[in-house]
Design a protein around this nucleic acid. Structure first.
Lengths: 247, 247
DNA sequence: AGGACTAATTGTATAAAATACAAAAAGTAT
DNA sequence: ATACTTTTTGTATTTTATACAATTAGTCCT
């Protein structure tokens, strides 16, 4: 909050200026919900959990949890991600906060939505203590979701499409050494359309932080592609002077 | 929130699975803070209030308040804006949520930041019940702010610059009937740089929702400019089919 | 070894958009 | 009528985007 507002002042100084019972303000809670996208070889999916308790028992939902009393918002989001995937160095980004009065049937809960994208391969999501079942869902077949989670998912998908224009989010998703075709496939999947091979490469030439290695693919039955690597240092340089990635 | 999470389940079912006292989760509150930009004739300012109580007594701060128990987040932000300016049909947009554990010295408070931009002229901000003093501040001379409000302001300024690229936010800021020069001045102020007059106009020709009127300026000591008007209907059409405003 | 095959890589010609700059037009003021 | 100011239109140039073709470097097969 901000000003020593009416409500907060009431609590602190035991004044009740507006005849709203003091405690009412503290019968609320906040949570984080994570839209975890998974990418692997032209496939984009989202990680959902199946709820084992009311409300919305049996429904699929986004993974999330209340924020602990001494936990930062971002940390709570990372914790949820880590509980489910055991991954720990994945950047996770806040996208929007949802706070309609009636969005949770059991009380006033506002939720801060986060999103991340991870490499899906080999990652069998953990059925953690609080998630009965977990599963990667294709974006084309999303079941009815609990709460306002469908709205949150839609918002996250839109944000993802914006993010990839300005940030190398493929950094943690593609292999350490990747081909330009792999990179192009990533973008084609996110935007659900195709790009011209030659022109795509021309644009990438401006991005100094995609550096060519002296290595090539092995064991492919065609001309092998050269491998590239993400150069974080050069990326940060370019980013600072107002750089961006429109494709 | 989302899953019937640990904490929430505890409260509802009176189970304490993780030995964090149930009530701890409800000793928290959420607030909204508003970054209200004011524009008038090439000037961009931000509306700050002076705090009359601890903590941060005497500091300047963003206007904000706790969210009422039965009030949507967006409504709370609109209410704060309305209390200060008496304006009521101004679009206000959520930008980010700030939730560091120690951001408020008196308790756990997360705040959802909103931003809006209004016409500054004739608008003497009200010294409402909870704001000792209010004042438009130039962005070049911002005093030390309470809480993390400087961080919030910076974020809002960045978001404003993105917003104006994709949305006609000048709609509520310029007069009903405006000249293209006025519109250009608005953009020049936000981005703090100048554009070529001819080229600026050329870009605007793509935007069908800026319609030319059969009227011209009066009482100017030079060639009068034709007046234009924002056409909401045409804007919505163009917006739907993936339109955007890069300048 | 030689040709078929596949995808990578480079190149080229054209269209579109951005930029810089200049000329003409339409008012007021003197 | 002329000077002056700002709007409005125009034009030439450069840059960027797009479409598409040609070449290259490997494997696979006979």
């Amino acid at each position: 909050m901000t000003t020593t507002s009416r409500a907060f002042k009431s609590r602190i100084q035991q004044e009740d200026l507006y005849s709203i019972p003091i405690d009412e303000f503290f019968k609320s809670a906040f949570s984080v919900d994570c839209v975890i996208f998974g990418y692997h070889e032209r496939q984009l999916k989202v990680l959902l959990i199946e709820r084992g308790t009311e409300p919305y028992e049996g429904f699929w939902a986004l993974p999330g949890d209340l924020v602990y009393p001494y936990e930062d918002l971002d940390s709570a989001a990372s914790r949820v991600l880590n509980d489910l995937t055991t991954l720990s160095d994945i950047p996770i980004r806040q996208i929007h906060t949802f706070g309609k009065v009636d969005r949770h049937p059991l009380g006033r809960v506002i939720t801060v939505a986060y999103t991340a994208i991870v490499e899906m391969q080999d990652l069998t999501p953990q059925a953690s203590s609080w998630a009965a079942a977990t599963k990667w869902h294709s974006l084309k077949r999303i079941p009815k979701l609990a709460f306002d989670h469908r709205e949150i998912l839609n918002k996250a998908l839109g944000e993802l499409q914006e993010m990839v224009k300005h940030e190398p989010v493929w950094n943690k998703v593609l292999p350490e050494k990747f081909t330009l075709t792999q990179l192009q496939e990533f973008y084609e999947t996110i935007f659900n359309k195709t790009f011209d091979k030659g022109n795509f490469r021309k644009k990438l030439q401006d991005f100094k932080f995609i550096t060519k290695l002296d290595e090539a693919q092995q064991n492919v039955s065609h001309r092998p592609s050269l491998l590239y690597r993400f150069n974080e240092k050069k990326y940060l340089e370019q980013k600072n002077k107002g750089f961006f990635f429109d494709l």
